[in-house]
Design a protein around this nucleic acid. Structure first.
Lengths: 111, 111
DNA sequence: CCTTAATATACACTTAAACATATATACGTG
DNA sequence: CACGTATATATGTTTAAGTGTATATTAAGG
């Protein structure tokens, strides 16, 4: 759950096509061909994106005959889920952060 | 909460320096100079990243004299938090997705 | 084995985006 | 209004990453 790993995960799934692959795989495992047909890019591109997703541990693949079935791994999403949870202070806190900041600035100016 | 907007938010905060800015601002509002000193990049770069963060609605700025104080907006993070919550099926579900998929495949082969 | 289907890799090309540097703007203060 | 501080913008350059096309690999079936 270190931030470097999370940052890499973030960068990886931020790419539009990989984002779409992730959204598709959320519904369940899919073969490469199924992914190709769902997206609007070529097969080599899909394979390449799957490799990147695989190398960062976001997906895994299992072999079923001549097909490879890709599915999402839980861990990276669990980490990101936890990270985004930590931002809940933004909408849960009553007091205005900006005011806090101003008070702090003024205090420093005083001395 | 449409996925296109979220995708843009994702892409925006995935960039390493902007990721760092976001992590810093999570602690509270900061002036541009404070951000420059916290990060290891030049002032023009910080201003540029802040502009991008601003244009995508991730931060807002308020003017305090000659300084501009940047702070995080809640909405984009709320959206992403909700999105990542939706992945909890990955670690909450008992049954193995792969097995499901296989059963489905076999069913199709039957007919 | 030979062929086909499914998937992966190699490579040249293009482009988006970050960076460094220089310069502009805006505001406060004497 | 002149000067310093804080921040923003403009521009040329570099580089990372996606794309398209061609080709390689792997497995199944006759």
């Amino acid at each position: 759950m270190n931030t470097t790993t999370m940052q890499i995960t973030l960068q990886t799934i931020a790419e539009p096509n990989r984002f779409n692959i992730v959204e598709l795989l959320k519904k369940g495992p899919r073969s490469v061909n199924e992914i190709v047909m769902a997206l609007n890019i070529g097969q080599p591109q899909v394979s390449r994106h799957l490799r990147i997703l695989s190398e960062t541990g976001i997906v895994r693949s299992r072999t079923k005959g001549q097909m490879r079935i890709y599915s999402l791994e839980a861990q990276p999403f669990q980490d990101l889920d936890a990270w985004f949870d930590s931002f809940s202070v933004l909408w849960e806190e009553r007091l205005d952060n900006f005011e806090d900041y101003m008070i702090d600035i003024l205090r420093k100016e005083d001395k």
